[in-house]
């Protein structure tokens, strides 16, 4: 039988291959980041390290405002998506029709971004018109402006987009959790909320925080849906795409791309490192406790 551990070179080669693939995939990103720190920009023969392009981006009021809007969008999306994803994952644990439920939850992922964005655009336009008609019919102005394109419609678009990802991440961390644990807590006298907070949440906390990080990154990286649904404000991605389309890639564009890449990698990296360190710490603790109990 083939022994996977017969030669250490087998393992080394596999790791080398894995790292080479990851490096190849990330190469364009690193290249872009590299250019963003070059005083002379793309295509120059001379490389002079500088933060100037980043200073320009952060000194541009329009870009800073778009960053703020993106942050607000991310926070609003987190506030809506995470509780929804948590409830969905809890429901998944209890339902017997798991395959159908997962297919339903993941279905937004199978619709291309531009199709989903334009469908929502048409839907919201008609919805706004319907509410305006309702207001007119009732003789009130209270319904005017509901579902006009703006922050709310952009958030709804983002929630539909990010919910499947958050659902999956939380579900993965729920693997250790069993419904019987909640029932056991109830049998010990806990209310439904106490059972959730004391027993269920500590086990899925990592998943919830990871989902928050993930949703934030997706909000910063999304351009198509927000471009169609945002109404009167711009997100950072919208600004970057608009700049690329209108004036091509400038040193400023590379710096904007650099900011997004570096922030994304930092967030994800932090989550991974935290998770690994925590897992290692828990295992060390478990090993220490597993020492045989000695009689005195």
């Amino acid at each position: 039988m083939y022994d996977d551990f017969a030669s250490p070179w087998n393992i080394r080669l596999k790791w080398a291959y894995l790292l080479a693939v990851v490096f190849a995939l990330l190469m364009p990103v690193f290249y872009t980041i590299g250019i963003s720190f070059n005083q002379h920009g793309f295509g120059a023969r001379i490389y002079e390290f500088t933060f100037d392009w980043y200073r320009v981006v952060l000194g541009d009021t329009l870009l800073v405002v778009s960053l703020k809007w993106t942050l607000y969008l991310a926070l609003a999306t987190i506030a809506a998506t995470i509780p929804m994803a948590l409830l969905s994952a809890k429901f998944y644990k209890r339902t017997r029709r798991k395959v159908g439920f997962v297919a339903l939850m993941l279905s937004p992922l199978f619709v291309p971004a531009d199709i989903m964005g334009s469908s929502l655009l048409v839907f919201f336009k008609n919805l706004a018109r319907g509410f305006a008609w309702l207001g007119d019919a009732l003789g009130v102005s209270w319904f005017d402006g509901w579902f006009d394109l703006g922050f709310l419609t952009a958030v709804i678009g983002q929630v539909i987009y990010t919910h499947p990802y958050a659902f999956i991440v939380i579900l993965i961390t729920m693997s250790r959790y069993r419904v019987q644990q909640t029932e056991a807590a109830r049998a010990c006298g806990a209310t439904a909320w106490q059972a959730f907070w004391h027993v269920e949440f500590p086990q899925i906390r990592v998943g919830v925080f990871s989902s928050c990080a993930f949703v934030t990154i997706l909000s910063f990286n999304e351009a198509v849906r927000t471009a169609l649904l945002k109404g009167g404000f711009d997100t950072f991605s919208n600004m970057l795409v608009a700049q690329m389309l209108n004036i091509g890639m400038s040193g400023e564009s590379y710096a904007m791309a650099g900011i997004m890449s570096i922030v994304s990698m930092l967030v994800i990296g932090t989550v991974i490192v935290y998770t690994l360190v925590r897992a290692e710490r828990l295992e060390r603790r478990a090993r220490a406790m597993a020492e045989p109990v000695m009689s005195s």
Partner: peptide, 29 residues
Amino acid sequence: PPNRRPTSMVFQNYALFPHMTVERNVAYG
């Protein structure tokens, strides 16, 4: 609901709180 009845329950399995020590499990109620 269960928390308002004079009963407690032992389940078939999977019912210990995995993130708590034995002591914290027993002390929970």
